[in-house]
Write a protein that binds this DNA or RNA. Structure first.
Length: 707
RNA sequence: UGGGGUGUCGUCAAGCGGUAAGACACGGGCCUUUGGAGCCCGCAUUCGGAGGUUCGAAUCCUCCCACCCCAGCCA
């Protein structure tokens, strides 16, 4: 039974329930339900609703029903009810014997309809669908009453009975509630209650040829089940008056509907229609493709139910539209798997390493921890031999700054094994690609400790070439490249934002032998790489297939990315208008040379940067520097800011800047530099010999915001 | 131009008239046989905007602005 780690976070729904309990509105009862339509697979948005409904019930000591809203036989299938059952169960919830179907209530609903007809509150309409639409009016214009609106009760009763008896064609007639064709709420303009549909229903088969609409079904189903708090999503907010109307006219038990905002997740889509499209057009391999935001997708991807529940609790419940950062979900699964996944070594892109001074044919079984977090998880043996594989990216012939893995002449530790030093590099004659490394090992460092206390900066994972097992590994990334793929204001289609690299399949991976026979779905941490699980569909005894659930946080990747971006800017000095924009240039004061900027600055950064017009009141060269100019700038704060800018090359005569207007990045933290405090940055660009002077539509004042 | 909703940090989100929780992300540091994990520190003088009420307003009032939903015989 899912149990919240701590006290559940406060939210508006709990407040309502607390209040209801206080006023004894429902006799102290709390009874919820999760009401999916079996027309597709459940996704993580449904998980939010499931956790909410089952969670609330559990916390308040009441039941939660599982009810299928199966009122549209043309879209619903048993395959879906099966998958829903499995997913809810997998998430860890139990609905006991309370598995219900709206279709169970068809008889009752029919009686309710008769009751409304008899009360003169419903009528059979002969208008076509198109005509009904026309008669409905628009958002601003009231609708017109149907000419059939005032039939007698007897006539309506007879017609409705004949509808039920199959005397009419699909679409030829409907039963409508008689409410108000002039209502500003379109839902109240005589909504359809029953339509004729000669279709076989997945449960009631051919018993019915008329089916109640969702609007006429949902509220009454909740009423029949004695639901107290009927929680649904925002789009049903303006249906509530209609549901209230039905319940009141019928004079039956009246649950309370509460609406909350559905979940949106960045870099994916949550609409069943779009997910269906991805499945049907083969953009993914199925509803359970590990890239899908479906429960079955996450399950196959290696997510745990606990992590999803944790996520659903952390995102909260509110009424505002939002897009939750998928990084939060990833945080939840990492957190859970860090605790429970045994560590293991796997090499995804192998590079052969020969330990020259290790005896040929010798094999040692070294001890390795299954979890550094939890000693109770025990140890295992890992075979070490003369020929190994390490990760290709753990070696660089020409290591960049801060890369402290293996390189020619460098010593690193092989986890749980030895220190090794690279003494030779073998390259392919043609391609010049590194194909093999020669290393020596230090026998004194067995297990990974050096008796002489010398340090190495890196620890690498590895496998023994002859002992390792081959495996296929599937690397998954976000399904879309755009945070909100459904944002199509630019005329794009969500499918245009699919990530072409959302799946990378690696086929010649090597994993340590302890993974032989790993059970489908079992989860591991491949040390230094990420969390992986054995694929439940394609993996078998003879063929190991792993799915990457999540990467580990990768500090080096971040550094490298930063370095690459910095390099990109310096490659073409002057090319970019931002070539001189730098965050850290002479900040340390240690170097005179201009450093590449820390990272590439894009438009998003500018949306966060506060750019202000600054009037230069004083400008002078900085003694002891041939790059820096000290500026005193007025940005309308009632005082001058002191700013050091590395623009001397463009301004041999700094005095000429006095009186000029420049653009100041005003919301940077002041930096203590060798020459003094710098309170901002001057936006400059162009090539090395001139400052790009900002131009303005009007004459700006110091402190004006630049957009 | 009708009705229903919503606007608090980059992203979620507490807050309910007494002076802006927390999480993720981000930045910095410590530690480390995973550049993992962990630990520490920093990160909204301000709550869509403008007025008003009040000793005191994110919370109350007024006006304005922005965004979302509704014209299925879908749910």
């Amino acid at each position: 039974m899912p149990k919240p780690d701590s006290t559940p976070p406060s939210n508006f729904i709990r407040s309502i329930i607390d209040e209801d309990l206080k006023t004894n509105k429902y006799g102290g009862r709390v009874h919820t339900r999760f009401p999916p339509e079996p027309n597709g697979y459940l996704h993580i948005g449904h998980a939010k609703s499931i956790c909410l409904n089952f969670g609330l019930a559990a916390d308040y000591g009441g039941p939660c029903n599982l009810r299928y809203d199966d009122t549209n036989p043309s879209k619903e299938e048993p395959e879906y009810v099966e998958s829903i059952r499995e997913d809810v169960r997998w998430l860890g919830f139990d609905w006991g014997d309370r598995e219900f179907y709206a279709s169970d209530y068809f008889d009752q609903l029919y009686e309710y309809a008769i009751q409304l007809i008899k009360a003169g509150k419903a009528y059979v309409d002969d208008l076509s669908a198109d005509e009904i639409r026309e008669y409905r009016g628009t958002l601003t214009k009231p609708g017109k009453e149907s000419p059939y609106r005032n039939r007698t009760v007897e006539e309506n009763l007879e017609l409705f009975e004949r509808m039920r008896a199959g005397k009419f064609e699909d679409g030829s007639r409907v039963l409508r509630a008689k409410i108000d064709m002039a209502s500003p709420n379109l839902n109240m303009r005589d909504p359809v209650m029953y339509r004729i549909l000669h279709a076989e229903h997945h449960r009631s088969s051919n018993k019915w040829c008329i089916y109640p609409t969702y609007d006429f079904t949902h509220g009454q189903s909740d009423s029949i089940e004695g639901i107290t708090h009927s929680i649904c999503t925002l789009e049903f907010e303006d249906h509530r008056p209609l549901y209230d109307w039905f319940l009141d006219e019928l004079n039956v038990y009246h649950p309370q509907q509460i609406e909350f905002a559905r979940l949106n997740l960045s870099y994916t889509v949550m609409s069943k229609r779009m997910l269906l499209e991805l499945v049907e057009h083969g953009y993914v391999t199925g509803w359970d493709d590990p890239r899908m935001p479906t429960i079955s997708g996450f399950r196959r991807r290696g997510y745990t139910p606990e992590s999803i529940r944790d996520f659903c609790e952390r995102i909260g419940v509110a009424k505002r539209d939002s897009i939750v950062d998928i990084a939060l979900l990833e945080h939840c699964i990492r957190k859970d798997l860090n605790r429970r996944a045994p560590r293991v070594m796997a090499v995804l892109r192998p590079l052969r390493v020969v330990i020259d001074n290790y005896p040929e044919g010798q094999v040692e079984e070294l001890d390795a921890l299954n979890s550094p977090e939890d000693p109770d998880m025990g140890t295992r043996k890992v075979p070490f031999s003369r020929v190994l594989y390490i990760e290709r990216e753990d070696f660089r012939e020409d290591p960049p700054k801060k890369f402290y893995r293996l390189a020619p002449g460098r010593e690193v530790r092989l986890r749980y094994a030895y220190f090794i030093k690279c003494v030779g590099v073998v390259k392919d004659e043609q391609t010049r690609e590194v194909v093999e490394l020669h290393c020596t090992y230090d026998p004194q460092t067995r297990g990974g400790d050096s008796p002489d206390g010398r340090k190495v900066r890196a620890t690498l994972h590895w496998v023994s070439a002859s002992h390792s097992l081959e495996a296929e590994v599937r690397l998954y990334d976000h399904l879309f490249v755009k945070p909100d793929p459904t944002d199509n204001k630019d005329g794009s289609n969500f499918k245009m934002h699919l990530n072409p690299n959302s799946l990378e399949t690696l086929t010649s991976c090597h994993v340590e032998p302890s993974l032989a026979g790993a059970a489908p779905r079992s989860r591991y941490q491949f040390e230094r790489l990420g969390y992986f699980c054995v694929d439940s569909v394609d993996s078998s005894q003879g063929r190991l297939v792993f799915n990457r659930t999540a990467t580990l946080r990768d500090t080096w990747a971040k550094i490298e990315k930063t370095q690459a971006k910095g390099a990109k800017v310096t490659e073409a000095p002057g090319q970019s208008k931002l070539a001189h924009l730098r965050k850290d240039a002479p900040a340390t004061g240690r170097r005179e040379e201009l450093e590449p900027i820390g990272e590439e600055i894009n438009i998003d950064d500018f949306s966060k940067i506060d750019l202000r017009v600054g009037l230069v009141r004083d400008s002078s060269a900085v003694k002891g520097s041939n790059k820096l100019i000290k500026l005193m700038v007025d940005i309308g704060e009632g005082r001058l800011r002191q700013i050091f800018a590395g623009i001397r090359p463009g301004y041999p005569d700094p005095e000429k800047l006095v009186g000029k207007k420049v653009i100041v990045v005003a919301n940077l933290k002041p930096r203590q530099m060798k020459f003094g405090l710098s309170e901002g940055m001057i936006l400059s660009g162009g090539d090395a010999d001139r400052l790009c002077a900002p131009t303005f539509e009007h004459d700006p004042l110091p402190g004006d915001k630049v957009t």
